[in-house]
Design a protein around this nucleic acid. Structure first.
Length: 402
RNA sequence: GCUGGAGUCGUCUAGUGGCAAUGACAAGAGACUGUAAAUCUCUCGCGCUUCGCGCUUCGUAGGUUCGAGUCCUACCUCCAGCA
């Protein structure tokens, strides 16, 4: 069972630590979205320096390239990517929702590879097998997001997600048993060694004691859309399963999220971590998520927006490509101590973007990723010292001013 | 100087009688939430009451025509070849 310690509670919110085979995650925490085993535009060293604690990769994308067998051969996701810290994989369930030409049946989902058009089917069982080969510390159950927001469609997708969850659990346990018996001669897994939260790591290449860890964990995924009765039903269903934590999926905006989480989180067992899938582009997502009982978050927004020139500041997002920054020689964000803000000014960033230099995307990604990771850390600190409400009000009032 | 070719939005460019005029780039702005996203969308002669209307435009000046960026004449500029 995945170890999760809670240091402090405040209403639904909690401050804790998740102990994975590849190190600890101090929660609440923002997990870097590394779909293809890389946080776009950033090296793993940069991610460490930013203060990232964990990354989340995507099963669908990784089985297409480079293939789950290859990642297993490399020693697992952490070894392969050089991250050497805690890792998650998303199941591929999101692709049922986001890709066109997806055919869903009770057995699973038939996709068409966006790379070469090759058809293949992903099932709860195959997703578990893929994820075990990829070898992240924490796996997501294979779920289905409804394509429409109608109640009947949402209910149907949720119920299928539940049936798939049972199959995921069975398959996960089956693989886990096989791996334990095969790995019994390996050195015991040491937790807390990969000090992933240290701001600078002296040696990026740590010893390979975690190669192909046999300890891998499964999160169930709560669905139900905007319907609170469905959310409650889904949470109840997932709560009883022998899983290590919970993903909360199918959330697209902070609107109504507090109510939804206030329905879901009290039903979920308190001693297991909860991951809010795909949320964290907006600061309010992290505040509302953490306040209402979510421990980890992931989102592609910060890095995607960074590549497109949309950068966080305490006064809201700015588009650094706008002409008004041409002669602005101030740091992007005065209060930020990321590499970008410490060493460069807005006029320079503007110039890099206007001339389409690669470094523009690198520096912007460093800043945006640092911003959300640091924000989650600040939320953690505020929860610990009891200043969360003040911090939240102050931060949001300034950020969403105008 | 002669002969041939060319001058169209900031730049390059399409255009061979119905055209405020094609495409690209540049420029201006917007979007982005478990990443088919270093992507996508909009604006881009001027003005207005902006799903429309008016005005002014294709080197310059005339002309032919119901109508000219497109045809004719002259001139200006540039390019190539010959002197």
């Amino acid at each position: 069972m995945l170890k999760f310690e809670i240091e402090k509670k405040s209403g639904l919110a909690r401050v804790g630590t998740i102990y994975t085979p590849h190190g600890e995650i101090k929660t609440p925490a923002f997990v870097g979205a590394a779909t293809l085993a890389t946080v776009k535009a950033l090296t793993m060293r940069e991610m460490r320096e930013i203060g990232a604690q964990a990354i989340l990769a995507n099963t669908y994308h990784l089985i297409l390239a480079p293939g789950d067998d290859l990642i297993q051969e490399a020693g697992g996701l952490a070894e392969f990517s050089g991250w050497h810290g805690p890792t998650f994989t998303d199941s591929g369930g999101f692709q049922i929702f986001s890709l066109p030409d997806v055919r869903i049946s009770e057995n699973g989902a038939k996709f068409k590879s966006h790379i070469n058009g090759a058809r293949f089917e992903m099932t709860p069982e195959s997703s578990m097998q893929n994820q075990w080969k990829i070898g992240a510390d924490i796996h997501m159950a294979f779920d289905q997001l409804a394509k429409s927001d109608k109640y009947e469609d949402m209910k149907e997708a949720m119920e299928r997600t539940h049936r798939w969850l049972d199959r995921c659990v069975d398959e996960h346990q089956k693989i886990a048993r096989m791996n334990v018996s095969r790995s019994s001669s390996l050195a015991p897994v040491v937790t807390g060694l990969a000090s992933s939260i240290a701001p600078v790591v002296a040696n990026d290449l740590e010893p390979s004691i975690h190669r192909n860890s046999y300890e891998q964990y499964l999160y169930a995924v709560v669905q139900g859309g905007d319907f609170l009765d469905l959310r409650a039903e889904s949470a109840k269903y997932c709560a009883d399963k022998p899983v290590d934590g919970f993903g909360i999926g199918g959330v697209f905006t902070a609107k109504g999220m507090d109510e939804m989480l206030q329905t879901v989180c009290p039903i979920l067992p308190e001693n297991k971590p909860r991951h809010l899938l795909g949320m964290g582009q907006e600061p309010i997502d992290l505040f509302v998520g953490a306040e209402n009982g979510c421990d980890t978050f992931d989102c592609v927004g910060p890095t995607r927006m960074a590549r497109n020139g949309s950068l966080y500041t305490l006064d809201g997002r700015i588009n650094i490509k706008n002409a008004r920054f041409k002669n602005d020689f101030t740091p992007l964000m005065l209060e930020c101590d990321c590499e970008c803000c410490k060493n460069y000014n807005r006029a320079y960033l503007h110039h890099l973007f206007k001339t389409d230099e690669i470094t523009a995307k690198v520096l912007a990604s460093i800043h945006n990723e640092h911003f959300v990771i640091h924000l989650a850390d600040q939320i953690r600190a505020a929860l610990l010292d009891g200043t969360f409400q003040d911090f939240k009000q102050e931060f949001l009032a300034r950020y969403y001013h105008d």
